[in-house]
Structures are given as C-alpha cells and as structure tokens.
Design a protein around this nucleic acid. Structure first.
Lengths: 226, 226
DNA sequence: GCTGACGAAATTGTTGACAATATTGTAGCT
DNA sequence: AGCTACAATATTGTCAACAATTTCGTCAGC
C-alpha cells in the first residue's frame, strides 16, 4: 500500500539522475561520439521532464562530456587521439601520486588485498573471463586511490576515464594486454611492499602509459581496417 | 551605427557568460563561501534571464564551485582545509608533469623567458608591487603548462585553483612567501636548463606544496585571531 | 539529373505563470 | 521574556506554451 503511494507520488528522475543515466549510456557505448542527444528521446527513455533533461545536459556540458551548440542541441563529444593521450598523461600523474601515497600509509591488510586481486586477475586470464578481469582491474585502481583518501583525485580520474571507458574491454582483447597489465600490477605491488614510494609511482605511471599505447594501436587498427 | 544596432539587438549574456561572471566574483572574493546566490540578485546584476542564470548555476555546480540544495538554491561552496590540501596535491602532480615535459621540449627562447620572468619577480619584491608579482607568477606557471600543450591539464589546474584563488594575494603578504617562491622558481629554472626532467618535476612539486603550507599557516592565524 | 528556392516539420531557446518549499514575521499564550 | 502556532513573504522548482532556428523534403527551372 505504502509502496503504491510512494510509486504514485514518485516524481520523475532528478537532473543528476538523468545525467547519470546519460553518462552510463555513453560508458556502455550505447551513445557514441558525435551522436546527437535529442531532448525528446531522452525524455521518453528516462521519464524526466524536458526541464530536467536540459539541466542534465548543462551539467554534462560543464564536465566536457557533451557539446552544446546553439539551436543544434547536445551531442556526445568524442575525444581525439591527441586528447586521449592528454587524458592518459593526466591520469598517470594523478594515479602515480596515489600509488606513492598508498605505499606510505597502507596497512598490511590493504597491501595483501592488492596481491589477492592481482592473483585473481591472473586466474581470470586462464579462465578467459574478461568481464571479471575488468572488475578486478577497476578494484585495483580504485583501492590505490581510496586508501590515500584524496576524493578530489578520485573524482578527477573518474571524469578523465569516462570518455574512453567503452574502449577498455576492447583493449583487453588486444594482443597480450591482459598479461601485460598483470605484469605491471605485480611490479606495482612489489614496489609497494618494498616501501619504495618512488618506484611505486614510476611503475604506476608506466602502467597507465602502457594502457594508452594499446589504445593507440587499437585506433590505428580501426583506421587500417576501414 | 552598426554598433548601435548590435547593441540594441544584443541579447542578454549567455549561460556561460553568466557562469564566467559568477566565477570571477568568487575569485575576487566578492562572493564568499557559504554565501547564498539568489537568482534574482544575479539577474539584476548580469541582465541575464532567470533561465540562463539557472543554467549557469547548474554548470558551476557540476564544476563543484557551488552547491545546490533543494528549494534552498545555490551557495558558494567553500573548500575545507582538508580539501585545499587535496587540491594542492593534485596540482602538484599535474604541474610537476608539465615541468618535466617542458624540460624535454621547450625552445631556448622559452627557457630564457622563464628566467626573465623570475628576474622581474625579484624586482617586484624590492619595489613592493605585489600585484605585478602575482601576474608574473601566473605567467610563469601558465607558460610551463602551455608549452607542453596539454589542454586537459591546463583546464584541470584552472578549476582546481578557483576555490583558493582569492587567498593567493593574502599568501604573498605572509612572511617571506614572495622570496621563497622566487627561490623555488630559480631552482625550477636551473633544473630545466640542466635538462633534468626529474629534478624539474621534483622542484615544481615542492614549490606547490610550499604554497600549500603557507595557506595552512594563514588558516591557523585566522583561527587564532578569531 | 542537378540546383536552388521555398516551405513544412523537427528541434531547441525563451518566457511567463504557477506550484512547492523555506524563511521570516507576528500574535497569542504561559 | 520565551515559546509555539500560524500567516505572510521570499525563493526556488516545474511546467506548458510560444518564438527562433535548423533540417529536410519538395518542386520548379535549367
């Protein structure tokens, strides 16, 4: 009964909820770069009012995820290869710092958890479970950022990642990317356990730059195919 | 004549222009943290319609510069000391990377310009022209970011700076901050001229962390005074 | 067949009015 | 005086209608 009332009195999604929905669509590549985001379509699919949809688009424009042109509306802003390079370099700097901080302050339990994650990732390669590999990879990186407790960096990295998020799983299929990534992770873990902040930072940067290189190769392959 | 027509047909400021205006007010400390941003006030002062003002506030909320509460409107979001620390650490990581990149790719003319700026800053201290010192300091940091050409980092740093921008000039009056800053700059310049990327990065980080320490002292002094 | 003008349809921009909520002021009571 | 309840005001949230602009299809003319 109360649920029914709640359902009836339930207003449509808020501006931020609509924005989150659009973001998720972009991350899942259901909205691709260049695609126009027509207001009525989003209204139909989210149930939000036009007002809230526009609100959401404004926020996303401020984040740089969509582009709004006068009388032409919003469209998904794709990152050029040059921008992607810049995103990755920024990420490398920020996550590198986190790795160094993690090395300084992490507890033994937290360091152990990193090892377990990396071991599980290795197993995922053998079992071919790419999706789980992706989740563990995310957990690895998230943990390194969460422990130092710098929310600003976490937020920045999340934003930097959104425009290329949909390419992540593609990259895992590229050559030996998964094995390479695990090898990178091991090097990071070793540096952390050795208490070597500088090495942890250096390895993390290298790891992320490697990820960028794979994206570049992927891009070239796509252009080559057609 | 044409100008008159242009002025007459001139619509009110766009959403981004209103947002820029609010940002500038915050940077100039005419809007202080916690202050409520009442829509009609902004409408009166900017000439923008209510729609555009709300648009602007949404964008600023996405940037994290203002906070919007249901039925209570927008207010300037002040950064806590802990957040300021996080902002500075992020800046240190990003600008550190730029310093290293600058060292790699800058031309001789660009390196010379850095020296000239730093010399001028020294003169400003003797002449007591704090404002000019601030401008030169900004040019120094901007140049180090512009030459590597990473627009993403430049944008991030600008955003990270906004919440503390109004404290910059205060910090210059604090103790020997100006002399310290110039000393830091000299060390950065030396590392760059020596072609030592790692040193340039290290010195830039130290420089920014020093800036943070001054803000911390400033904060404590304020709390001490009352 | 192609081009350009023209107009209908689609889409976004803007405004104003009204609803929902918070804030402030006031009166009455203890 | 201090407190609560209630009314008045101020402020923000929402919506629907209308204006401005682009986009797309159509058709005449060459």
């Amino acid at each position: 009964m109360e649920k029914a009332i709640e359902a009836l009195s339930r207003k449509g999604p808020s501006g931020t909820e609509v924005a989150d929905w659009i973001r998720s669509q972009i991350r899942a590549s259901r909205f691709v770069p260049g695609q126009r985001l027509v207001e009525v379509d989003i209204i139909r699919k989210t149930g939000g009012s036009r007002f809230k949809v526009r609100e959401a688009l404004q926020r996303l424009a401020a984040e740089g995820l969509v582009e709004i042109e006068e009388y032409r509306g919003a469209s998904v802003k794709g990152a050029s290869m040059s921008e992607i390079r810049q995103l990755y370099r920024s990420r490398a700097a920020l996550e590198g710092l986190c790795a160094a901080d993690f090395t300084r302050i992490a507890t033994q339990a937290q360091r152990d958890r990193l090892r377990v994650i990396t071991q599980d990732m290795e197993r995922c390669i053998d079992e071919g479970s790419t999706e789980m590999f992706g989740k563990l990879n995310a957990e690895f990186h998230t943990m390194l950022m969460q422990v130092p407790g710098n929310d600003v960096i976490q937020d920045l990295v999340k934003r930097l990642n959104t425009p290329v998020h949909h390419l992540l799983f593609e990259s895992f299929y590229r050559g030996d990317r998964m094995r390479e990534a695990v090898a990178d992770h091991w090097r990071i873990v070793e540096a952390i356990d050795a208490g070597d902040c500088a090495a942890a930072e250096r390895e993390m940067r290298r790891h992320i730059e490697n990820g960028h290189r794979v994206l570049e190769a992927l891009d070239q392959a796509m252009h080559h195919d057609g």
